[in-house]
Design a protein around this nucleic acid. Structure first.
Lengths: 105, 105
DNA sequence: CAGCTATATAACTGTCAAGGCATCTACGGA
DNA sequence: TCCGTAGATGCCTTGACAGTTATATAGCTG
């Protein structure tokens, strides 16, 4: 159960969208639904998958459930990526334009 | 067509296995098949997907096709991950054990 | 308690993709 | 040219999974 599982979970665009939304901080299910085009049950199911993969945590606030990012699996994904970094790090000819791109964020 | 596509492609364990094998350098299809438990056609199909996603390149050598890693999409995945890095970078209490883990490779 | 709100679960359906086997194509050697 | 090898492609079956609607559960409010 390495970063592998996280990759499978993140393959779903809706789940990446949820994570993106959660980058702004804790959100209730209803908040998330309001920003997405799928039904509330669909969002709930994605949240379940994300939670089982450890990518989000939830806490209860009355009837609402507030979800937030749990970075652990993303960190593992970062580790998985590590051995590949050398493949582009060595390509210095591309490095500069890459840094340019990142600087623009 | 951002890192999204790469994530979908990498969700497949067999495809990650192929990439791992290719980290050792160029490999023919037969070489790859020899290290995996799926049939030759299955490997060929995965290679096609990987190639269409730009994750590998191929060159011909007589009847053989030699495949190798193309890091571009992985770099994009790295970029996708960037906005999330702050989530664990700030958790200094976990940093040390994380470094321990990495040191053991 | 009655009723409302917020979320989760159930049951069902349609789509898609991975894997296998059989076959086709390309190249090289005798 | 004929055969063997390497790989790709076609077809088929099967399983996983996203999405929907309907319903269940939990907590708040009057």
């Amino acid at each position: 159960m390495g970063s592998s599982s996280a990759l499978g979970v993140l393959a779903e665009p809706s789940r990446r969208e949820i994570l993106d939304l959660l980058r702004g901080g804790e959100q209730s299910v209803g908040d998330l639904v309001g920003h997405m085009r799928i039904s509330q049950p669909a969002v709930s199911k994605h949240l379940r998958v994300l939670k089982e993969a450890g990518l989000v945590d939830a806490r209860a606030d009355a009837q609402r459930r507030l979800y937030r990012i749990n970075p652990g699996p993303l960190e593992e994904l970062d580790d998985w990526l590590a051995p590949y970094r050398g493949f582009w790090a060595a390509r210095l000819d591309h490095l500069e334009s890459h840094l340019d791109r990142r600087r623009k964020r």
